[in-house]
Design a protein around this nucleic acid. Structure first.
Lengths: 351, 351
DNA sequence: CTGAAAGCGCTAACAT
DNA sequence: ATGTTAGCGCTTTCAG
């Protein structure tokens, strides 16, 4: 237990070889080594219970074989799925993932990035809340590859991978319109992220295309509150509150359907509607956004817009690996297509 | 961008000092350095835009300042919360978290542990599915501190931190009994983990204490299927299926309440019951286990047993930090207390 | 095919 | 208070 750890020198000594040769064998270099020497070394390594110290290799090669993943919070199931995808590809590629929960805090984001740099991480996947233009510049200048997921970052130098939120919302809203709805509400927390802005835009586009001018009161967007920690409960309660505003409207103006900026908010809305004795989808249809696992567990199960989260993770990580290998990366900007998942919370409205 | 990275030598040169002095200043060692020298060095570091290369320090000190966290899957919200707690403490202590999703695969678990060792990780928090006695021995022998969370591991050398599942289930079942229920079902996936076994035991204990002998058919435990990837949907569908069996029983034998081994399964049960026209909690009360965020979003919101997951994470990581610092760690085995959270899925049964 | 030697960036005796 | 020196464990020229 308190023995000195065994190194390639110990092995070299045991088989009367040099450390160089041992290194060549044990690091799977393609440098020629006689097969008998190679065999002896491998046996000795096993016998001595050798474990390579990667810090040595990594210092030499200046490559830590780790990537950083900076997200708001892993307790958000959305990111949990993305990270699962990232980690899977990373592992397959021999990389490890350093997980950083930045809690929507720009200072923490910067702190993490610094730490990752110091740990000689050469690639970072980030879903940053910071919109401040150029803030990644100093890191990029140090040769770190950065991939921004889900949230846009103003920079030509970072690869952006996300979802086409606008189109997703457009699809969702069109779905409602096709089912005979015209008074369609949009509910969301503050539009302080590009994703939410795009969802809002998609809603507007679909409405306009259908020739519907939404009433002000149909568009319920809550105040921007700078709560530092992410929390599902916030979105949920927000949905409850916004739905409450909606049903306070006079019946002839009241919407017959709600498009929510995410599933959590939709869940809150449904809960509130039911508590207020409004049947979903009988009296009010609800469509969500994200397709987290929750959505099929609700009653009624939630019609929503699927975002391929795991696939976002794998694509981001694959792209990062290409970048690190110096392979050519085609697009600097990629969008994964959303898709409406029909379940039970939307009903066709008979005129 | 392709410049050589700046090292302490560059700084030393600039201020006419030795690398040693620079190191002493920049690594916050408490070794005495004149304040003017110190100031010059700090300024030079800033001017040169110096970023320390931790690989150098870590190789020297043989400490990677990373810990490993091995869990079945981060997409399980239970573990997401735990990991959030772990990461928070790790960050505060200057450590980073390497995340490993082992997908209930013993081979992957071992592979990860090996990689972590090679990366010179000195502490690992693991929720292992492997029950094979002594399998951690080789790692422990290399001086790695291991903390086992949530799942028991047969070893005197690893600190165990978990929940008192038995007591939690006992509380839950007693809660139902106190509310007049006597025909109480227990539903669960296969009892292939100690947590589930203990929950089952708690159920039995509470029933026995109340003088109730459960019918065989009340205890619905599904087959052990070796599905490699964890998936919420599995637990959910399992709940649906098991609930289905329950309501197939003749009405006079049919349970009036269900104790579920986790919230996901409870959610499935509730869904199935509602689909079959059985009112929850009017005709059937349901109590869950875990208190994941989903539970308050369901309708009816789920009465369940809270497990302090985030706290488990922080406690585990704090304990690990103590271990790594060589501080004395009191208990080798800790249990966090569960607690019944009353919501709307349990009703008092009037005889 | 194999080995000697230098060095990745940093720290820590041990001098001075 | 500062400098010199010798590594940490590994890879990689360069010579043989």
């Amino acid at each position: 237990m308190s023995d000195k750890p065994v190194t390639i020198y110990d092995i070299a000594q045991l088989v009367n070889a040099s450390a160089a040769t041992v290194s060549r064998v044990l690091s799977n270099s393609n440098y020629p080594v006689s097969s008998e020497m190679s065999k002896k070394i491998k046996e000795a390594a096993k016998q001595l219970n050798y474990t390579p110290n990667m810090l040595g290799r990594q210092l030499k090669k200046n490559n830590s074989m780790s990537i950083g993943v900076i997200i708001p919070s892993i307790s958000n199931p959305f990111y949990a799925d993305v990270v699962l995808g990232i980690e899977e590809i990373a592992r397959q590629s021999g990389y490890q993932v350093l997980l950083c929960n930045a809690h929507q805090n720009p200072k923490l984001e910067a702190e993490y990035l610094q730490t990752l740099l110091e740990k000689q991480v050469k690639g970072v996947i980030i879903s940053s809340i910071s919109q401040r233009r150029g803030w990644l510049k100093p890191y990029l200048n140090r040769g770190v590859s950065i991939i921004s997921i889900d949230q846009r970052i103003e920079s030509r130098q970072v690869v952006q991978i996300g979802f086409d939120y606008r189109h997703g919302a457009y699809l969702a809203c069109s779905h409602l319109i096709q089912r005979g709805h015209r008074r369609i509400a949009f509910i969301s927390a503050a539009l302080n992220r590009s994703s939410r802005q795009h969802i809002h835009q998609g809603y507007q586009d679909a409405m306009q295309e259908a020739g519907i001018t939404p009433l002000k009161a149909w568009i319920q967007i809550s105040e921007d509150c700078e709560d530092t920690k992410y929390c599902s409960t916030f979105e949920f309660n927000n949905g409850k509150q916004l739905a409450h505003h909606l049903i306070a409207m006079p019946i002839q103006e009241r919407p017959t359907a709600i498009l929510s900026c995410n599933d959590l908010t939709a869940a809150g809305a449904i809960k509130e509607l039911k508590e207020q004795g409004i049947d979903v989808p009988g009296q009010m249809s609800v469509i969500g956004f994200d397709n987290i696992e929750l959505s099929e567990m609700l009653t009624p199960s939630l019609t929503t817009v699927n975002l391929p989260k795991y696939e976002l993770g794998t694509l981001a990580c694959r792209t990062l690996m290409n970048l690190l290998n110096g392979d050519h990366v085609g697009e600097r900007e990629m969008m994964l297509p959303p898709e409406v998942i029909e379940r039970d919370s939307v009903v066709t409205r008979l005129e």
